[in-house]
């Protein structure tokens, strides 16, 4: 497999890998490093890739595992994640919508969710994956995915309402 061919395979989903990594690792730099790592791993396994019919699912799985490992070793090393980049992305769109505060709130609310719910919400509401795909990716049953998703959505709704009320008072 040549470099251009590889890029054509990887290009459609590399942003998804990055967004999942960023959701889990929070920091932009960490997510970039993780994505780069995953793409390089894929490149080194490019002979195997041709055998997979769903490279995207495989890559997403790799990203998930990689990020969870990262987080685990971080906790063990007692290091805190640095995240100071909430508002730098998509400034124009946020201004256009005039709800920039609410949007960064949601990002923070999602950060506070349990890891599993975080991933389910990311995969479903941002990436629009089907329940079966999410179930396979996360090693859960489709019903469990549904329950986790419902909980995550409700938590976001409640916290958002809370924050709105505080804002008013």
């Amino acid at each position: 497999m040549q470099q251009t061919e590889f890029l054509n395979v990887v290009l459609p989903f590399k942003d998804k890998l990055y967004r999942l990594a960023k959701r889990l690792l929070v920091s932009k730099e960490e997510a970039e490093d993780a994505t780069q790592e995953i793409l390089m791993k894929l490149w080194s396994k490019k002979k195997m890739i041709t055998g997979y019919n769903n490279v995207e699912a495989y890559a997403m799985m790799m990203t998930k595992n990689f990020c969870l490992d990262r987080l685990k070793s971080k906790q063990a090393g007692n290091l805190k994640l640095v995240h100071s980049n909430y508002k730098d992305e998509n400034v124009s769109l946020q201004n256009q919508l005039e709800v920039s505060d609410s949007l960064s709130w949601i990002e923070k609310i999602m950060e506070e969710l349990p890891q599993q719910q975080k991933m389910v919400l990311q995969l479903r509401d941002v990436e629009q994956y089907e329940f079966e795909e999410i179930a396979e990716l996360l090693g859960m049953s489709a019903t469990a995915v549904r329950v986790a998703l419902s909980r995550a959505r409700k938590t976001v709704r409640e916290k958002l309402v809370q924050k709105h009320n505080y804002g008013i008072q």
Partner: peptide
């Protein structure tokens, strides 16, 4: 709106 914005993020 956040979900739509979040999907725009690029590597």
């Amino acid at each position: 709106q956040y979900f739509s914005v979040a999907k725009e993020e690029r590597f």
